[in-house]
C-alpha cells in the first residue's frame, strides 16, 4: 500500500464514516457523499496516471458526470424535504420509523 493509495483510501473511509455516524443536516450528508466521490475521482485518475494507461483517463470524467447527477438529485431531494418537512435536519425524518 503506497502513501497515495493510503491517502485516498483513508479519505474515502473518513467520508463514509462521516455519512454513517451522526449527521445533523441532510446537506452535511450530501457533502460527505461528495467527499467520497472526490476521493474516488482522485483514485481513478491516479490509477490511470501511475499505470500509464491513458485510455483510462476517460473513467474519472465519467465518474465526475455521474457524481454531478447524483449531487443534483440529492440537492433536489433537499429542496423537496425542506418543502414537506419544513427543515433539513435529519432528525425530522422520523415519520416512517417502526
Amino acid at each position: 500500500m503506497t502513501p497515495v493509495h493510503f491517502s485516498f483510501t483513508s479519505a474515502f473511509i473518513l467520508g463514509l464514516m462521516g455519512l454513517a455516524f451522526h449527521r445533523t443536516h441532510l446537506l452535511s450528508a450530501l457533502l460527505c457523499l461528495e467527499g467520497m466521490m472526490l476521493s474516488l475521482f482522485i483514485a481513478l485518475s491516479l490509477w490511470a496516471l501511475q499505470m500509464e494507461a491513458i485510455g483510462y483517463s476517460v473513467a474519472p470524467m465519467l465518474l465526475l458526470a455521474f457524481s454531478a447527477c447524483e449531487a443534483s438529485a440529492g440537492l433536489a431531494l433537499l429542496v423537496a424535504t425542506a418543502r414537506t418537512h419544513g427543515t433539513d435536519r435529519l432528525q425530522s425524518l422520523n415519520l416512517l420509523q417502526c
Partner: peptide, 13 residues
C-alpha cells in the same frame, strides 16, 4: 419524500 431521501442516501452510499 422521506422514503425517497432515505432510499437515495443508502443507494448512493
Amino acid at each position: 419524500i422521506e422514503a425517497t431521501t432515505k432510499y437515495f442516501l443508502t443507494q448512493a452510499t
